[in-house]
Design a protein around this nucleic acid. Sequence first.
DNA 1: TGTACATCAGTGAACGCGCGTTCACTGATGTAC
DNA 2: TGTACATCAGTGAACGCGCGTTCACTGATGTAC
Lengths: 205, 205
Amino acid sequence: VGKKATYHHGNLKEALVQRAEQEIEREGFENLKMQALTEAVGVQPSAAYRHYRNRESLLRSLARRSFDRWDAEIRALMARTSPQHQAEAILRFFLGDALARPQMFRLMFDSEYGRDARSIVGMVSFLTLEQALRQLMPEEDEEGVRTRLLWSWATLHGTALLLIEGRLQRFYVGNMHTESLIEDIIRALLPGRSGRRLAPPRSPG
Amino acid sequence: VGKKATYHHGNLKEALVQRAEQEIEREGFENLKMQALTEAVGVQPSAAYRHYRNRESLLRSLARRSFDRWDAEIRALMARTSPQHQAEAILRFFLGDALARPQMFRLMFDSEYGRDARSIVGMVSFLTLEQALRQLMPEEDEEGVRTRLLWSWATLHGTALLLIEGRLQRFYVGNMHTESLIEDIIRALLPGRSGRRLAPPRSPG
DNA sequence: TGTACATCAGTGAACGCGCGTTCACTGATGTAC
DNA sequence: TGTACATCAGTGAACGCGCGTTCACTGATGTAC
C-alpha cells in the first residue's frame, strides 16, 4: 500500500494485466480504457506503452493468456476423466467457465481480439472435444462426428452468449433454472445413451 | 440522377434508411457513420438530425423495421404451412434469413440496438415457435416444451453467429457444406420423428 | 389568382470530447573498470 | 568497494483525429385571406 515505494513500479506489466482482467469482467472489453486502467494501477497513461504497443495488443495478449489457462484446465480435466465422460466434462466446463467469467468468454469467443489465440489454442480443445465425441459414437464416420462437433460447438456458443446477456432467464417457467437448463442441453448434445428425451427425471423419484 | 433537382430532398428519411441498410450490410452496424451515410445520400450531415434524434435512434429504428419485416414473413410462412411442419419452417427461415442478411441479423439479435424490438416483436415469433414445437411433442409438459424452445433458440443463435463470421466453414470435411450442416442441425432440433441419428441418409439410395 | 407569412427541411461551418497515443524528459538500476 | 555511464521504466503534458452533434442560416412549400 506504500504509495510510490519505488519510482519504478516493479512489475507494471503484470499489474496491468491483472487490473485489466478485473476491469473487463466489470465493464466488458469494449469499455476497457487505457487511461482508466493506468490510473487504477497508479501510473501515467504513457507507462502502459512501454509494455504494450497499443490497446489492441494488450487485449490480444489478455485473450491469449485466457486461452492458455483455459487449455490447461481442459487438459487437466481430461487427465482425470475417463474417456466415456470426457465429452460431457468438456461441455459442462465450457458453459460453467463462460458463466463464471462471462466477459472473458466474450473476449475469447466473441471478439476479434480473441481470434489468433482461438485459432491456435482454441483449436486444440476443439479437437479434444471431437475425440471425446467420437468415443460415444463409434459407428459414425468422420463426417458424422465432425457435424456433431460443429453442432455442439454452435449450441454451446449460443447458449453461453444468451445466458451471459440474461436473455434466456426471463423465459424460465416452473422449476426451470440455469443449471437445469444446462443439464438438459448437455444431455441433448451427448450422443447415444440417454435416448432422445429432452428432460429425463432429474432426481430419484 | 438529376443532382439537386429540388432543394428539399423529398423523402430523405426513407433514403437514409435504405442507404443505412446497405451500409450496414457491407460494413456492420458498428461501422455505420452518420457523416458517410448522409454524404452517400447527397446531403449535409446535419440534415439527418431533422429525422432522427441521434445515431442510436436511427439504429434502433432500423432494427425495429427489420423485426417488423421478419415478423410479417414468419406470419406469412405460418399461414401457408401445416402445423406439423411449422417448427421446421421457422428454424429453416431463421437460419436462411440470418445468412441472407447477416449484418442485419447481428443488429437484431446481437446488439443493444435490437433489444426493444426484440423483446416485443421478437417475442411473438418466439412464442410462435413454441406453439409449433408443442405440436411435435404433445406429451411433453409446459416446462419440457419451454426447455426445448430455449435450447433450439440458443442453437440457432450460435449457429447463425458462427456461420456469419465464417468460423464453422473451415472445419468442414468430406462433403460437408453449409446447407447440409443446417439440415442436420434442424433435424437434430426437431422433436420426434426422425429418431436421434444425426445424419440420416440425405438422398434416396 | 395572387400576395404575406409561418413552417419546415435543408445548408455550411464548426464545435467538442473522449481517448488512444506520442514525445521530450528524468529518476532509478545495473554493469564495467 | 566506489565511481562513471548506459539503459531502462517511468513522468508530465499535450496532441490529434474521428465523428457525432449543434447552431445560426436560408431556400422551398403550404395556407390564410
